[in-house]
Amino acid sequence: MAISFEHVTFTYQAGTPMAQTALEDVSFNLPDHGYLAIIGHTGSGKSTLVQQINALLKPTSGTIKIDDFTITPNTTNADLKPLRQHVGMVFQFPESQLFEETIRKDIAFGPQNFGMSPEDANELADQMLTTVGLDISYAERSPFELSGGQMRRVAIAGVLAMRPQVLILDEPTAGLDPQGRQEMMDLFEQLHREQGLTIVLVTHQMEDVAEYAEQVAIMREGRLVKFGDVQEAFGDPDWLLANQLDVPRAAQFAQQLAKRGFQWQPLPLTADQLAEQIAEQWQKRGTDHV
């Protein structure tokens, strides 16, 4: 699903003395099957922005279009039900939302709520369990006996069971160990690649952005200060540093070498991209010697 924001502004407690503007005049277009990373400091408006996409928060002014759905300040909740079925949201620490007696029941809860028969929902639940990399033998167990990383997988399976076309992930790997993080990111990449899910990822992990994202949105104080592909977003490390954002390690390293006369085209953002360009120069060196 393509997502477009047109001059979206959002104010918490609008019209009261407590009013606080969290998004200001945000506009962008994300193509269908995109993979968007949203970065920025704590409090820059990232979470407020993603909550607009499934209309948990509705804009104070402006318009959001998600394929054929249009969200305006006047959209009613009744109009939003079909949209919410298509936009799956994984909150921070989703494992805290588990509540059922068994893992199967927990995953099947959402689809049943949207009218699926218990039999079909259970079958779908088992399927989703496999998708997130857990063995089917887990289905009858209590979700509360699992490790933190496994609980998070179950919670994500519950979101996937809604068969969303857009998956919103708000810091999905926070608090996991490096291996758990890697497995989680691989899962999203697979869903994106194989099932064509549009992914919107809120993260502080710049290495993940460089590795997985296709588009990047940079937020600062409620404004969208940069939107583009990964190279456009990270190609100017000085700008990132001036905005107190982390530069991917590979780009930092490449910049150090650039000071000594190395030439990069374009600036490498991942270890793989960096090694690729080094290997090219390595071979050239070989031929120069001959």
Binding site: P178, R249, F253, A271, D272, I278, A279, W282
Partner: peptide, 20 residues
């Protein structure tokens, strides 16, 4: 060991893959 790889270790692995 449950630790992240330092960037230099990632780069070394990527270079090795390319025969360096």
């Amino acid at each position: 060991l449950g630790l992240d790889l330092p960037f230099t270790a990632k780069l070394k692995a990527a270079l090795k893959k390319r025969g360096i």
